[in-house]
Design a protein around this nucleic acid. Structure first.
Lengths: 141, 141
DNA sequence: CTCATTGCAAACGGTTTGCACTGGT
DNA sequence: ACCAGTGCAAACCGTTTGCAATGAG
């Protein structure tokens, strides 16, 4: 996976530039322990880098996803959410409190192979989101 | 599961009403062999029932999801997609051509139990979408 | 007749676009 | 100096809301 420090040179070698905006957004995503929406990234980013615009946030996120540095997922909050693509893992979202919990990739690995064999698809979305009710919300319903 | 014909009385017994709008939208979803977006449902529905509005489509879909008659899912086309909640199945979406393919529920059943045991969550999202490349798109990349 | 449901119009919020300017290399 | 990347403003599009009118029961 990508360590943080070699990303700038990695991008430069491909003809891209490392700008303050990209740095701030990458740092935010790397330091966050949860998904962030474009709006959240814009608010947090504008604190550190006044003048940052939402346009740039969207363009930067699309760029980082293209480069495989960031992953997008939909967890039901209405906006896509983004996170640093560091580690293979998945999410289990509570429909009650919207809190999310990580799931290790291992239990899904077999399933992926099984799907590939059965369908002929090259299953490359290594990020799956499940929905359910967490233990503390289970009682409420 | 729900057969189509008993839905009207099912809703009436709960104090709701069966309107032409709800009927048309239910029929569309039941006859479609794929997911439909609110916009698609509006266009198809307005053909059969002139005067139908987008507002009504959105409200009706939310209502049908509440009643458990319809399921929503996000497949990456930007809008939520809806389908009749008849059968337990999942989807595998091709990132190349956006065509989708059904996956039987069986291979995932074990995984759900496994997740429930490991996390304590009551996993109730019985609809998962995977992404990948279909056999014919695999060559293009 | 009543109240759930609809239509209309307007607001809303997230996202995208065009274009001139800026700043990384 | 060049061109990738940004800011700004406006457009865009899907979705939601308020309110009066409608029509299913």
């Amino acid at each position: 996976m990508n360590t943080y420090t070699d990303i700038p040179s990695q991008l430069r070698s491909l003809g891209f530039r490392m700008t303050p905006q990209r740095l701030v957004i990458l740092q935010l995503l790397q330091e966050a322990d949860c998904h962030l929406t474009p709006t959240e990234i814009y608010r947090l980013g504008a604190d550190q880098l006044p003048g940052l615009t939402e346009t740039t946030v969207y363009r930067t996120l699309a760029f980082l996803v293209d480069q495989g540095l960031v992953m997008a997922s939909y967890t039901g909050r209405g906006q896509l959410e983004y996170e640093f693509a560091g580690r293979l893992h998945h999410h289990l979202i509570c429909k009650g409190c919207h809190r999310s919990r990580e799931i290790d990739h291992q239990p899904l690995a077999d399933l992926y192979h099984c799907l590939q064999d059965a369908t002929g698809y090259q299953v490359d979305s290594m990020h799956v989101t499940f929905f359910g009710l967490c233990p503390s919300c289970k009682g409420d319903r």
